[in-house]
Design a protein around this nucleic acid. Sequence first.
DNA 1: ATTGACTTTAACGTTGCGTAAAGGTTTACA
DNA 2: TGTAAACCTTTACGCAACGTTAAAGTCAAT
Lengths: 254, 254
Amino acid sequence: MDFTIQKLAKIAGISTRTLRYYDEIGLLMPARTNSSGYRIYGQWEVDQLQQILFYRELGVGLEVIREIIMDPAFDKAKALKRHREQLLNKRKQLDSLLVNVEKTIALTEGRITMSDEEKFEGFKQQMIDDNEARYGNEVREKYGDDAVNKSNEKLKKMTSKEFEEFTQLGNEVKATLSEAFKTGDPASDMAQKTAELHKRWLTFTWDTYSKEAHAVLAQMYVDDERFRAYYDAEQPSVAEFLRDAIHIYTGFKN
Amino acid sequence: MDFTIQKLAKIAGISTRTLRYYDEIGLLMPARTNSSGYRIYGQWEVDQLQQILFYRELGVGLEVIREIIMDPAFDKAKALKRHREQLLNKRKQLDSLLVNVEKTIALTEGRITMSDEEKFEGFKQQMIDDNEARYGNEVREKYGDDAVNKSNEKLKKMTSKEFEEFTQLGNEVKATLSEAFKTGDPASDMAQKTAELHKRWLTFTWDTYSKEAHAVLAQMYVDDERFRAYYDAEQPSVAEFLRDAIHIYTGFKN
DNA sequence: ATTGACTTTAACGTTGCGTAAAGGTTTACA
DNA sequence: TGTAAACCTTTACGCAACGTTAAAGTCAAT
């Protein structure tokens, strides 16, 4: 009827460290100790441990287990239901992680198969990945998965010549913007040229262009810390300037 | 182009502590520090952080991320696939946890509805739960879910009178076994009586009785630490004695 | 008497930060 | 120009549930 720590551990299929830990946190103390300080467990402790391990296998935390087994009046069903909700949430998270991982694997493998213009394809892919990582969630929320997917598709279908044009144009936008900013006038020719270049740049990946969407995006550049970090890199308030220029260009404000 | 720690944190949507931690573990160090020791990050660091956060969102551990981003030749697809396997395993575990939690909730609620002989029902339920917790997995593996479920069902359907007989009989088995053990002979009348009592005790929960199954169970008592802890509680090798008696009784060995 | 199996406490390591605490720096405003 | 607000720094404990030494005492058997 009396068990030393190792015997109990073997019976229960756990480690002695676990039993010492449970003793330490007061979850399961031995019935007594012998003259040399050895822990001695009795039948009651075996039963308690059984209970503990039962709930532990359900993934319940030790503190909750303590409540459950210490107080017989404790509402175990309620505790289990709360626990079930937590498990369901965890699984949801896991599922979305899995979807993303799958997607990334597929993308990565797509890159591997088309090893013809490998480096170039890699660039495109990298760009898509980066954009997804940076703005993916929010942009998808705002514009829907469809628009983003189409945009990515369009990017992936670009030839290396088109892609070069695209990046080239992006640099032009930045350079022109920098020039235009010096004029201080978002209505200036230079600023309006920037807005037009920006539009051309956008249409490389946008499925359909609309002045409204363009104007909205311009405001987004200002609102979003991360967009602003890109455009404000050299001088502050460049993002605002670009927005104003685009609003004038499109004739829309929001 | 230069970011202080907080600016970078805001851009990336993380905490400054995280950036300091990444610095500490050498995952992402600032480009330089200014005269007062402030961390200054450049464009390259922003891009690296982007990569880091991308993989982090997939649930990849920081050490693996380090490998992935430090070495451009690293096989990212392979790493992601390994990661996917881990995620799938986690989800499997979660799912089985959920099944068990559901079952427990159902059982618990079943107990709540039949509050007529509540305490008694509680005992039965407790017994089922305990058995499931102690031996559930292995017994189910060996004999199949069906046998175990039927056994539990049979137990649940017992009236309080039958249940009393059942526990009474269990005590008798133990007492007779203790007596028989003193004779030292598993073929003795007392030992054979024990075997028969044990059979009667079994048929309370077993759907169908067979001598083979009985003999197998007897061996299990010996092989399994936990069963043995129950029968060997008072004297060692009692489990072996019981096994021998049953083997003689059933005429089977295995 | 010695070996081997067992026990004890103490304390660090794990993962990815959160959260003070104590003190220096920079910036903005009166 | 003073000072308060908002930054920045390092140091270090806390979390969940133990695993893993390490140093030292105990027990059973040869």
